[in-house]
């Protein structure tokens, strides 16, 4: 098969944060390289505070102060790739309705149909006139996911979007994400410190080190997604990964089931 242009190619040689007044700068990323094929769902796993969000912000174009290169494959029509971002907090504008929050990221002529379609897809067809402070945490995340899918992203970045939610809500949101992703295939880069979550969702895991972050290993998950719900398979996989990557144990301990 001919080599396919990857959807995302990132080579971050160095990313430093300046510290106040002469203190040594903090090196967040060093030699982090990542290549994702179109349509792949990749989980980026690493300990909390290892620079995962920093990396996503670089890929999203929010942070241009780094040494290295990020390349996104252009759209089929030759225009630059669109990037959807689901932040760790939903980041919905509290002074705009759910409808207006999603319409904001769309061209005005297409907004109406797309917003209604997306709200139905995330199971909130009646919520369009509500303001974000009126939503439950789970509903807010659904709207944030709807907004990211609404732009038909070529690359979807997700930064621990299900963190600090109760178990049932997380289960529902993961299921929703997979349903949406099957109906609207796109390349996904999903950041988490939860190895179990990564194993449930991803085609491939990319494991990061403690800072300065770089890739320390990769795990292909060959188990069909339909087989991943029951506990034992995931636990077996998880033990397997932890046996090979002892440095992850610290972070895995924080994600023990509640």
């Amino acid at each position: 098969m001919a080599p396919v242009t990857p959807a995302l190619l990132a080579e971050i040689r160095e990313k430093r944060y300046a510290r106040a007044r002469g203190a040594a700068s903090h090196e967040a990323l060093a030699g982090l390289s990542l290549r994702i094929a179109a349509g792949e769902l990749v989980a980026l796993v690493g300990p909390s505070g290892c620079g995962k969000t920093t990396f996503l912000n670089i890929v999203a174009g929010l942070d241009r102060d780094y040494v290295g290169e990020v390349r996104l494959a252009p759209r089929p029509d030759g225009r630059p790739a669109r990037v959807g971002y689901v932040f760790q907090e939903p980041r919905l504008l509290p002074w705009r309705t759910v409808y207006e929050n999603i319409a904001l990221v769309l061209p005005p002529d297409r907004a109406d149909a797309v917003v209604k379609d997306m709200l139905t897809a995330v199971g909130l067809p009646g919520a369009q006139d509500l303001y974000p402070p009126q939503l439950s945490v789970g509903m807010s995340r659904r709207v944030a996911i709807a907004r990211a899918f609404a732009i038909e992203p070529d690359l979807l970045l997700m930064d621990e979007p299900f963190v600090s939610l109760d178990h049932d809500t997380v289960e529902q949101l993961r299921e929703l994400l997979l349903t949406l992703w099957r109906a609207r295939p796109t390349t996904v880069l999903f950041v988490t410190h939860d190895l179990r979550e990564a194993l449930v969702l991803a085609d491939r895991l990319v494991l990061l080190s403690a800072p300065p972050a770089h890739v320390v290993g990769e795990v292909e998950v060959s188990l069909a997604r339909s087989q991943r719900h029951s506990g034992p398979e995931i636990e077996l996989l998880r033990d397997e990964v932890l046996r090979h990557h002892r440095e992850l144990i610290g972070s895995a301990a924080t994600s023990a089931p509640k």
């Binding site: 912000n57 999203a60 174009g61 929010l62 669109r82 990037v83 959807g84 971002y85 932040f87 907090e89 980041r91 504008l93 705009r96 207006e100 904001l104 990221v105 907004r147 732009i151």
Partner: peptide, 19 residues
């Protein structure tokens, strides 16, 4: 956080100012 959201979704200057 809101400015980053607007920037990453390429919300234009005028719409960012207004909304």
């Amino acid at each position: 956080n809101y400015s980053q959201m607007a920037q990453s979704f390429h919300v234009g200057r005028w719409r960012t100012l207004r909304h």
